[in-house]
Computed example of a mutant assay.
Amino acid sequence: MGINNLDLTNRRGIITGAGQGIGRALALEFGRRGGHLLLVGRQLATLTETARLVAAEGGTTEILVEDLTQPGAVERIAQTVASWSVVDLLVNNAGNVRAGRLELSSDADVHSMIDLNLTAPILLTKTLLPALLQSGKGRGSILVNISSGIALVAMPFYSVYAATKSGIAQFSEALRRELIGTGVHVATVYPGATDTAMMASQNAGAELGWGRRSLGDVITDMIAALEAGEHDINTAPDEMQQLNFTDPMAVDAAVAPGLEALELAVRDHRSI
């Protein structure tokens, strides 16, 4: 392996939002590399299916049905892995979305996105960091924070979601610098629109700037980048990213003609 490469084999750790989508797919990738994983999510049925699939790939799992936004959830996760000799992987993947005009958003939906997408991963990372640091003294630990392409190009009708995903990206960047030299590898992932259950209620297509990639392609890119030791893993289409950096008002101008159509296409987008 190269000097910067990461060994993803035989990892022991936690994946949140492991019942479907990116969380399940990452569980399978670490499972087929011999991992032992604590699968965390809200639905027993989907976690059980993930566990079955991981077992078929040669990995082992434990299941914890937990809503990360509820009091005591983080502590229960920590207690579950307290007896493990090694905790060298944490994937903060769980998230939710509710699209629409800000003034039409309920306070409950605002709090739900902030609590799950931002507060929960911060608190979980804080609680598990001593274990990750201890394991980091050996072959190193891996912390993966799933942000979003929307943190790079914030899109209308996703203002709160964009705020949470930008927040987790900046949290991840700051923590990466805080942990230099500790053996904890911090990676921030920026997936674009991906063909998962989370996107099932969203009807915007490529013509409105929401071209979707297959889950398989996104995961393939993500794992390859992680194995190569990358810290910023961007699997989102980059057509607008550079323009948003150099001339953000040009992005405004490009988006403006399709605003009404976009609002109609995303108004039912909800995973809460």
Rank of each mutant, 00 (worst) to 15 (best):
N4I: 07
N4S: 13
N5L: 06
T9V: 06
G13F: 12
I14G: 10
I14W: 06
I15N: 11
I15G: 11
T16Q: 10
G17V: 04
G19N: 11
Q20K: 14
G23D: 02
A25F: 12
A27E: 15
E29G: 11
E29R: 15
F30A: 09
F30V: 08
G31R: 14
G31Q: 13
H36M: 11
L39F: 09
G41V: 14
R42N: 13
Q43N: 15
L44H: 14
A45R: 09
A45S: 15
L47H: 08
L47Q: 08
T48E: 15
E49W: 01
A51E: 12
A51R: 07
L53G: 02
V54W: 07
E57K: 14
G58R: 05
T60I: 01
T60L: 06
T61Y: 07
E62N: 05
E62Q: 15
I63S: 04
D67K: 03
D67V: 05
L68C: 04
L68Y: 04
L68H: 05
T69K: 12
T69A: 15
I77E: 02
V81A: 04
S83W: 00
V86C: 10
V91T: 11
V91Q: 11
N96S: 06
R98N: 12
A99L: 12
A99F: 15
G100K: 08
L102D: 05
L102C: 00
L102T: 12
D107R: 13
A108Q: 14
D109K: 02
V110F: 07
I114W: 03
L118E: 04
T119A: 06
P121V: 05
P121T: 00
K126N: 15
Q134Y: 04
S135F: 09
G136A: 08
G136Q: 07
G140C: 09
S148V: 03
G149W: 05
V153W: 02
A154R: 11
F157I: 09
Y158H: 12
V160G: 03
V160A: 02
V160C: 01
A163I: 04
K165W: 04
I168N: 06
S172G: 14
E173F: 00
A174F: 02
L175I: 06
T182D: 08
H185M: 07
Y190C: 01
P191I: 04
P191H: 08
A193K: 09
A193I: 07
T196Y: 04
A197P: 04
Q202S: 11
N203T: 10
A204S: 10
G205D: 15
A206K: 15
E207S: 15
G209V: 13
W210A: 10
W210G: 01
R212V: 08
R212P: 11
S214Q: 10
G216A: 09
G216K: 08
G216E: 14
V218I: 12
T220S: 13
M222C: 10
A225S: 13
L226T: 03
E227W: 00
A228I: 00
G229A: 03
G229N: 03
T235I: 01
Q241A: 06
N244F: 13
F245D: 02
M249Q: 13
A250G: 13
A250N: 06
A254Q: 11
A254P: 00
A256Y: 00
R267C: 00
D268V: 00
D268Q: 13
H269K: 01
